[in-house]
Structure formats: structure tokens, C-alpha cells
């Protein structure tokens, strides 16, 4: 019993040591990839802004791609790209068609992107 405890203790000890080691390694990895991380982080910031703007418009009323583009001041093809992604991850649903364009609306947040 005692032996087992010691064994257990040793294990957790090793684990935490390993964790420390891993944290250090992670730090080193992040440092070595700083350029890439900065670049991606910038893209993600832009994506969050865009997604927020699109969501705000859709919260107002179900809208077509040109309507979203007009209200968010983004090009229509970019808006469509975001809408396709949000649809894939269950954030928005397609509604009725209006003069050749479908309307989209927000729906239950099954797999959030933000």
C-alpha cells in the first residue's frame, strides 16, 4: 500500500515535471514561430470583426448577400465565403429566395465560430 502510494507520488511528480518541460517547450515553439503566429493572429482578428458585423446585420433581419455586403461594407464574394463557413458550422440557416438571392438568418449556435 505504502509502496503504491510512493509509486503514485513519483508518477505525479514526473507528470508535473513533464508538464513544466512541455510548457517550456511550447514557449520555445511559439517563439520560433512568432512571425507565423502574428500573421495568423492578425487574420483571425479580421475574421472576428467580419463575423461580428455579419452577425449584427443578420440579428437585425434575415438578409441577402448584397444586403449584408452593403451594411458591413465588405465585398459580396467575401461575405458569401463567410456565410458559407457559418452555414457549415451551423450558425446560420438559409431562408426564402428574393429575386435570385437567398436570405440568411442566425440560428442556434451548434458549433460556434467567433
Amino acid at each position: 500500500m505504502v509502496e503504491e502510494n510512493i509509486q503514485q507520488h513519483k508518477k505525479t511528480d514526473e507528470l508535473s515535471k513533464n508538464l513544466d518541460k512541455k510548457a517550456d517547450a511550447m514557449k520555445a515553439l511559439r517563439k520560433s514561430c512568432k512571425n507565423r503566429i502574428d500573421r495568423v493572429a492578425e487574420i483571425v482578428r479580421e475574421q472576428k470583426r467580419a463575423l461580428k458585423a455579419i452577425r449584427a446585420q443578420l440579428a437585425n433581419s434575415p438578409s441577402t448577400i448584397p444586403e449584408i455586403a452593403a451594411s458591413t461594407d465588405m465585398p459580396t464574394d467575401i461575405v458569401l465565403w463567410y456565410v458559407a463557413a457559418m452555414k457549415k458550422y451551423g450558425q446560420i440557416a438559409e431562408k426564402e429566395k428574393d429575386d435570385g438571392y437567398y436570405r440568411y438568418s442566425l440560428q442556434g449556435e451548434s458549433h460556434v465560430i467567433d
Partner: peptide
Amino acid sequence: GPYNRVLRPSDGKEPD
């Protein structure tokens, strides 16, 4: 598919 239907990629219009 990306839109689950055929739409014009520039603006989401259903092509005629």
C-alpha cells in the same frame, strides 16, 4: 457543397 446549392460565387445570386 459550400452553399448546398448552385450560386454565383461573386455574390450568391442563383445563376440564370
